[in-house]
Simulated scan of single mutants.
Amino acid sequence: MSKSAAGFFVLALLSAILHFALAENTATTLPLVACGLFSALFVLALIAGRRIKFDPVLR
């Protein structure tokens, strides 16, 4: 996992925890929207990381 994917994963977790800590009866809050955005960016970072091939043999 790349550093950017790990960062987006942590941000998504933190915003989800913040949503559950602050919102009791509301359905949509700003931390929940941020959680969805960071989750989507996490998935995109994982996909982008898989397309870059790393050749460990130096020629």
Rank of each mutant, 00 (worst) to 15 (best):
T26H: 09
K53Y: 10
R51H: 05
T29M: 02
V33E: 02
C35D: 10
T29K: 00
P56K: 07
A34S: 12
L13D: 04
A40N: 03
A23W: 06
I47W: 03
A16R: 14
I17D: 00
S4P: 02
A23E: 12
A16I: 10
R51D: 11
A34P: 01
V57R: 09
A21R: 07
I52M: 15
V33Q: 00
A45V: 06
I52E: 15
F8V: 00
I47C: 04
G49I: 08
C35M: 14
P56W: 09
L14Y: 10
P56L: 13
I17R: 00
L37Y: 15
K3N: 12
L18T: 07
E24Y: 09
F8G: 01
A34N: 01
A12L: 09
F54V: 11
V43R: 02
S2R: 09
T28P: 01
A45G: 12
R59M: 05
F54D: 02
M1T: 11
A27G: 00
F20D: 15
L14D: 01
E24D: 03
E24T: 09
A48F: 14
L14P: 03
S4H: 04
T26E: 15
F38Q: 01
V57Q: 11
L30G: 01
L14M: 11
A34M: 09
A45I: 05
F54H: 11
G7S: 10
L46C: 12
I52K: 13
L14R: 01
S15C: 08
L58Q: 07
I47S: 01
F38K: 01
F8A: 01
F20W: 09
F38V: 06
S4W: 13
A27C: 06
F54R: 02
R50D: 06
G7K: 06
R59I: 04
T28G: 00
L58N: 12
S39C: 10
V33F: 04
F8S: 03
R59C: 11
C35V: 04
L37W: 06
D55S: 11
V57K: 01
G36D: 00
A40P: 14
F38P: 03
L11D: 02
A40Y: 15
I52Q: 12
V43E: 00
F20T: 05
A23C: 06
S39I: 02
